Simulated scan of single mutants.
Amino acid sequence: MSITEAFGEFRTGKTQLAHTLCVTVQLPPEMGGGNGKAAFIDTEGTFRPERIRAIAARFGIDPDTTLDNITVARAHNSEHQLDLLNELCIRLCEDKQYRLVVVDSIMALFRVDYSGRGELSERQQRLGQMLSKLVRISEEFNIAIYITNQMTADPGATLSFAADTKKPIGGHVLAHASATRLYLKKGRGETRVCKIWDSPDVPEAECTYQITTGGINDAQD
């Protein structure tokens, strides 16, 4: 019943986590799953059926059935992205088996459609409308929402010694809508690090993970 946002640089595992969640949500509750279906709104052409097949094989479930339980829609602009959410609401009313909605990524099309400070206010207003609809979907249908987000340079951070010079885009509108925010970054070698950036019920912490053919794995596995 809330939004979880994962932000980070390129190749930190945001989309791979989305693919893994689309599979694990179909697992029974005793295996940590939701025993339900997933909806995937793709804004950057990142959805890969072959990844779903590989991850399904890791968890010992049928790849074809797994793919059948994932509804995928490709958004081509920010208006289309909002239209897809409206269509999704109709589908959720008709089919109560959905437990997860993924938007990968939430800001990509907004950055294309609205450029420059002159359009920033309008962009944030439209973004706020979309996030408000996602929040309502999560609450009314008791569904987990997972969104990915990009990062941008933070000029103000350079004034502070050893500060992180990048920050997630979307501003306060996105920050307030996301109940839990995860910062994914590159670690040593092939490892990645996930940091809890903000959460209402989980303390700040970090974990190390790896991206494998079977999805996201704990680095200690």
Rank of each mutant, 00 (worst) to 15 (best):
S138M: 13
A153M: 13
K185R: 15
A38N: 06
Q81V: 07
E206T: 15
H19R: 08
I55Q: 01
D113L: 07
H80V: 08
V23Q: 00
H176V: 06
F141T: 10
F141E: 09
Q125P: 08
N149M: 05
L88E: 02
G34M: 10
T165I: 10
A39M: 14
T20G: 04
K195V: 08
N149I: 02
L67A: 12
L120W: 07
T12M: 04
A56T: 05
V103M: 10
A73T: 13
L100S: 04
P29A: 13
F161R: 08
V193A: 05
R48T: 07
Y183G: 03
M107C: 06
F59T: 02
F110I: 08
N149G: 06
Y114Q: 03
T66R: 01
S199F: 04
E9C: 11
L88D: 00
G215D: 11
S160F: 15
P203W: 01
K185D: 11
P63C: 09
L92A: 07
P200W: 04
R126T: 09
K167M: 15
P155K: 10
A179L: 04
T4S: 15
C89P: 00
A153Q: 13
Q220R: 12
V25D: 01
R117K: 13
T180P: 01
A179Q: 12
A38W: 01
E50Q: 10
R91V: 15
S105H: 02
D154F: 09
A56H: 00
G156L: 12
L174K: 04
I55A: 02
N69W: 05
T212N: 06
G118I: 02
S78C: 11
N69M: 13
E206S: 13
G116V: 01
L17G: 02
W197K: 09
E190K: 13
R181G: 05
P28N: 14
Q97H: 12
F110G: 03
S78H: 05
T158F: 14
S121Y: 10
L100N: 06
F161E: 08
G187F: 03
L88T: 04
S160Q: 15
S78G: 03
L131R: 02
S132C: 04
K186A: 13
T158C: 08
L159N: 11
S178F: 04
I41V: 14
I52Q: 01
T43F: 01
D95G: 14
F59H: 14
